[in-house]
Write a protein that binds this DNA or RNA. Structure first.
Lengths: 137, 137
DNA sequence: GTCCCTGCAAACGGTTTGCACCCGG
DNA sequence: CCGGGTGCAAACCGTTTGCAGGGAC
């Protein structure tokens, strides 16, 4: 069994989420790619490998994996859900021209005391940069 | 005519967008509020003042106003569109508990040279902080 | 054996569209 | 008067749900 496969099985066990072939395929697909596909694009991709897998399972499992923290939803254009299996801290860049979403290195938010953020209890910080990506320049 | 009304008429003229009573009401409503309602909530609100105004006009005009730069779309939960007429630079805070979206003071992104952002042409920066708002703490 | 997961199809809900009429410039 | 805006209703499309059968543990 590959290193990736063992990693995924371990992650399922650790997070108390049941192992199924559909979930395995989904997470493997996301971990191998960094193009932040939408839920429906993911459905179409994995369907090539497992034609009987239903949309419902894709959507259910994307939620299950999000809740387990193995995947996260990323910001995108047009109110559609895009997903990312890179759970290391990072930000995102969205290209105005091709709408691709790319990962950008992490940077810290300002300290709460500095900026009038004192009144909030802050759990997470996410930045979105927009502009033109190298390919579209 | 009120100061606000003159401001709105001027903004329409400057941006070459035609003046209609529906657009006026929409923009006035957004400028008077800072609660970042969803498109549908906006429809319900303005409908109390202009019961014949249709959903189509609300959606069309929210787009028209966005394109004219008089309004912007803000990040939100659940793939629904929320709008904001505060066009000064600022970021947003989303409460995990009540899902309210609040404005937070502007802060700058890191300089491109510092962070591996060199390869992008950056046009805009937007940060989303999540956590618990003062009311829900 | 139990309970959760799966596939299917239908429902849902926010948003968009087609169209005839209307109104601002 | 012209061209874009409006109201209405139906279409759209990404997502969720109900349900009967199946697989993980």
């Amino acid at each position: 069994m590959s290193k990736l496969a063992r990693e995924i099985e371990g992650a399922f066990r650790e997070n108390g989420i049941r192992f199924t072939s559909q979930r395995f395929l989904l997470l493997e697909h996301l971990m191998r790619s960094d193009i932040h596909e939408s839920a429906d694009e993911i459905y179409l991709s994995v369907n090539r490998k497992m034609p009987k897998m239903s949309r419902a399972s894709v959507y259910n499992n994307l939620h299950a994996l999000s809740e387990a923290g193995l995947v996260r939803q990323v910001p995108s254009e047009g109110n559609i859900a895009r997903f990312d299996a890179n759970i290391h801290r990072h930000h995102h860049f969205i290209c105005d021209v091709c709408t691709a979403v790319e990962d950008v290195p992490w940077f810290e938010p300002p300290q709460p005391g500095d900026t009038g953020l004192r009144k909030y209890k802050i759990r997470s910080f996410e930045a979105v940069l927009r502009g033109t990506c190298p390919k579209c320049k």
